[in-house]
Amino acid sequence: MIRLSIPLRQALSRLSLPVLIAVAFGTMLLGKADALLAERARTALADALMPFYAAFAEPAHAVRDAVEEIEQLFVMREENARLREENERLRRWQAAALSLEAENAMLRRQLAFVPERAPAYQTARVVADGGGVYARAVLLSVPPEMQVRRGQIALDERGFVGRVTEVGNRSARVLLATDMNSRIPVTLEGSRARAMMVGTNGARPRLQHWAEGSRPAEGERIVTSAEGVAFPSGLPIGVVRWTESGTAEVELFARLDRLDVVRLFDFGLGGILPPEAVARPEPRGRR
Rank of each mutant, 00 (worst) to 15 (best):
224 T>F: 06
228 G>D: 02
209 H>G: 03
179 D>Q: 07
198 V>S: 09
145 E>I: 09
217 A>Y: 04
162 G>A: 04
195 A>R: 05
156 D>M: 11
200 T>E: 03
239 V>T: 14
221 R>W: 02
182 S>A: 15
159 G>H: 03
166 E>F: 02
237 I>N: 02
233 S>V: 06
225 S>G: 07
222 I>V: 15
243 T>V: 05
151 G>L: 08
238 G>R: 02
238 G>K: 02
218 E>A: 13
238 G>Q: 03
186 V>I: 15
205 P>E: 09
227 E>M: 08
152 Q>M: 15
219 G>Q: 05
233 S>G: 11
233 S>F: 04
222 I>C: 07
168 G>A: 14
209 H>K: 13
183 R>W: 09
172 A>V: 00
170 R>K: 12
150 R>S: 09
154 A>N: 09
242 W>R: 07
222 I>T: 08
225 S>E: 03
167 V>D: 02
198 V>E: 13
196 M>W: 05
157 E>V: 12
236 P>I: 06
193 A>Q: 04
199 G>W: 05
166 E>K: 07
222 I>H: 04
145 E>W: 13
175 L>M: 14
204 R>I: 01
166 E>W: 02
226 A>L: 01
144 P>L: 02
224 T>H: 08
194 R>L: 08
180 M>I: 15
182 S>G: 07
174 V>R: 06
188 L>W: 09
193 A>R: 07
167 V>I: 12
241 R>H: 09
207 L>S: 06
225 S>F: 02
181 N>E: 13
180 M>E: 08
152 Q>H: 12
159 G>D: 10
145 E>H: 14
238 G>C: 05
230 A>P: 00
154 A>S: 07
210 W>L: 07
237 I>P: 04
170 R>N: 14
194 R>Q: 12
211 A>R: 15
222 I>A: 07
165 T>E: 09
168 G>R: 13
215 R>A: 13
205 P>I: 10
151 G>P: 08
160 F>R: 01
197 M>A: 12
201 N>F: 03
217 A>N: 09
146 M>G: 00
227 E>V: 12
202 G>W: 01
201 N>G: 12
208 Q>G: 00
161 V>F: 01
208 Q>F: 01
177 A>D: 05
167 V>L: 05
228 G>Y: 03
160 F>Y: 15
230 A>E: 12
212 E>S: 13
154 A>I: 03
184 I>M: 12
155 L>P: 01
215 R>S: 12
175 L>G: 04
230 A>Y: 01
160 F>A: 06
180 M>Q: 15
209 H>S: 15
181 N>D: 14
181 N>S: 15
183 R>A: 10
231 F>V: 02
231 F>M: 11
206 R>T: 11
240 V>N: 02
147 Q>I: 12
191 S>A: 03
170 R>G: 08
239 V>G: 00
232 P>V: 14
211 A>S: 15
234 G>Y: 10
176 L>K: 01
207 L>Y: 10
184 I>R: 04
177 A>H: 04
149 R>D: 10
223 V>H: 06
143 P>K: 06
209 H>N: 15
